[in-house]
């Protein structure tokens, strides 16, 4: 089956700045695909090129089998876009936002109205149908933006940082909605700098940094490949972390020293903690957890994802 998105050597430069530096990826239909990386990694620029609102500088790109530089409107008519910043229409009521947006695609009004009601139910906003957009909370606005992106029954739903700026509860509600879409077989493409989000929602992802792809795979594959099963996080106090790390050399598969803590990568965290104590080292706090994409990113770039 042909992939719905295929990029080869995809590049975008703005003057001297290379925002996207020759990336290759493919997204098959029905997959939930993520671009994970810190701010400024080139994720949003990539999304804009796939969304056919920004032309590429070099490389090849096919979205739904078409070249976005030549077939912008055809491609855009089959995409649902959730931008990083909400751009709902503040002069319209909640339900009107959906109907009017549907009309932009040339969808008949009666069809828009019917879909609007279904989508309001999906977004759990039925009570707010007649409210102004400004009356909604951040999480509600985000859900409305997602509902709006679904009004044209898109073949691909693109979400740029879908839960940035939301409180934990609102994030979970949103994840639940997105997970339902995924279960229905909607192709999702999302960017995020949250590892937990990527682990929750993505079947497969690429780790992006400085416009390049650093690694690619499912969340569990990446963790297996670039991190150990478990991580022990030890804190000895800001001044003493480096000294302690030197004495811990050889104890773990890999050691990362961060300003506030030391990370020890191992398959058995508890056993490692015992050996630390045996060495006569007494961290002020210690914690054993499963490895996450954060660790993958640290391994790949030497930096944490969120500074």
């Amino acid at each position: 089956m042909t992939p719905v998105i295929a990029a080869r050597g995809l590049t975008k430069t703005f003057g001297d700045l290379t925002a996207v530096d020759g990336i290759d990826f493919e997204v098959p239909a029905g997959e939930s695909f993520g671009l994970l990386g810190p701010n400024g990694a080139g994720k949003s620029t990539t999304m804009r090129m796939v969304g056919a609102v920004s032309s590429r500088t070099a490389g090849d790109l096919r979205v739904l089998g078409l070249d976005p530089d030549a077939h912008g409107p055809e491609i855009r008519s089959q995409l649902g876009v959730v931008p990083q910043e909400d751009n709902l229409d503040p002069e319209l009521k909640v339900r009107e936002n959906l109907i009017v947006y549907g009309r932009y695609f040339g969808i008949p009004k009666a069809v828009c109205a019917k879909r609007a009601d279904e989508l309001l139910a999906f977004a759990q906003l039925e009570d707010k149908a007649r409210n102004k957009v400004d009356d909604l909370s951040g999480g509600m606005k985000r859900r409305l933006t997602i509902a709006r992106a679904l009004i044209n029954e898109p073949r691909i739903l693109m979400l740029d940082e879908p839960t940035t700026g939301l409180d934990p509860q609102a994030r979970h509600v949103l994840w639940d909605r997105l997970f339902r879409l995924k279960e229905r077989g909607t192709t999702l493409v999302l960017t995020t700098h949250y590892m937990d989000e990527a682990e929750q929602l993505c079947d497969r992802l690429v780790v992006v940094d400085h416009g390049r792809i650093m690694a690619e795979g499912s969340p569990s594959q990446l963790i297996r490949q670039y991190a150990s099963r478990e991580v022990a996080e030890l804190r000895f106090g800001s001044d003493r972390n480096a000294d302690a790390a030197a004495r811990l050399e050889g104890l773990a598969e890999r050691i990362e020293v961060l300003p506030d803590r030391v990370l020890l990568y191992t398959d058995d965290g508890e056993a490692l903690l015992e050996r630390v104590t045996d060495l006569g080292l007494h961290p002020t706090t210690s914690l054993v957890r499963r490895s996450s994409l954060e660790d993958v990113f640290l391994r790949l770039t030497g930096r944490s994802l969120i500074e």
Binding site: V53, S77, P83, N87, E91
Partner: peptide, 14 residues
């Protein structure tokens, strides 16, 4: 402020 045109131009509108 409304970012209205930005939203409109991500659809098939020209």
């Amino acid at each position: 402020f409304g970012k209205l045109y930005q939203a409109q131009l991500t659809t098939s509108i020209g």
